[in-house]
Design a protein around this nucleic acid. Structure first.
Lengths: 153, 153
DNA sequence: ATGGGTGCAAAGGTTTTGCACTCCG
DNA sequence: CGGAGTGCAAAACCTTTGCACCCAT
């Protein structure tokens, strides 16, 4: 639901768990709200964006806030194998399919792909192993269209 | 093929690419051969196992060897979000399905699950995005049977 | 014999932590 | 007001790198 993508939603969730709504947390979430998708920001990225906005927030606070937002389910923490954790808005909700990431082995570009299709597999897993699945992370490694074309030459 | 799981295979692959077969590389691969599956070893783990075997191999060499074995397709490098890269034997071959990992959010245990079922999804992706898929990595996060039972109490 | 491989220690990068100060509730 | 949250710097980690020496080929 769109309720999930607002500062008010953050406030509500924080209050429910007795966390405080601080200016820092608000500003950090706002960055993700401003960049609807496509961006997978690292703590360093967020820190830099804040700096450009003249908002000096300590790097340690950025790390702590991202971790908190992820634990609240507002952000998703993902690892693309580039040496740091990256975060994106968690757009997963019961009605929508979540997306996968295609990672180009040549140019390291990350492409989003909207199609889930893992329901059947999840069902098989739950049945056979008794594992209760909360979330999943699917990454495909390969070569993007552009790199494949440049490799043909 | 079983040929893939031997020191001789390593020797052949190394020679093909003008790498040298050294005692260190042999010993490090042997550790993975000795522990057929279930283990996802970090560089530190491998270094410790070597030390217990009275084989003093420098940590830097362990890192370099693991990286090399992964680049040769003999090992797979995986990130389970615990702060370090882990490796396992690459049992992927054209005929067999590869497996997924179920990661318990409570006890951090990693369970292997043998079922691929991603052919259709891969085909859809290739068709729509022109992305050539080489490999994929699928992780399911949730709660294992044991943790779920202990949480019910 | 020769160039790739190794070991060691130092450097690099990301993330966490201790502590005094701040400010939300 | 009181305690959670913050900022800063230091520390903790994992990983990479420079360089002298070693040893497969």
């Amino acid at each position: 639901m769109s309720e999930q993508f607002s500062i008010d939603y953050l406030k509500k969730i924080l209050q429910e768990k007795d966390y405080k709504m601080t200016g820092q947390r608000k500003e950090i979430l706002q960055i993700f709200l401003d960049q609807p998708s496509q961006h997978h920001l690292s703590a360093e990225d967020v820190h830099l964006i804040l700096r450009n906005k003249k908002s000096e927030i300590g790097l340690a606070t950025v790390y702590r806030s991202l971790e908190l937002l992820a634990s609240l389910g507002i952000l998703l923490k993902i690892d693309f194998g580039d040496g740091c954790s990256r975060y994106e808005l968690n757009t997963t909700d019961p009605d929508s399919h979540c997306h996968h990431h295609l990672i180009c082995l040549k140019c390291r570009k990350v492409i989003e792909f909207d199609e889930d299709k893992l329901d059947e597999l999840e069902h098989t897993i739950a049945e056979r192993s008794g594992f209760k699945i909360i979330n999943h992370e699917v990454k495909f490694f390969g070569y993007c269209k552009e790199c494949r074309e440049s490799m043909d030459n």
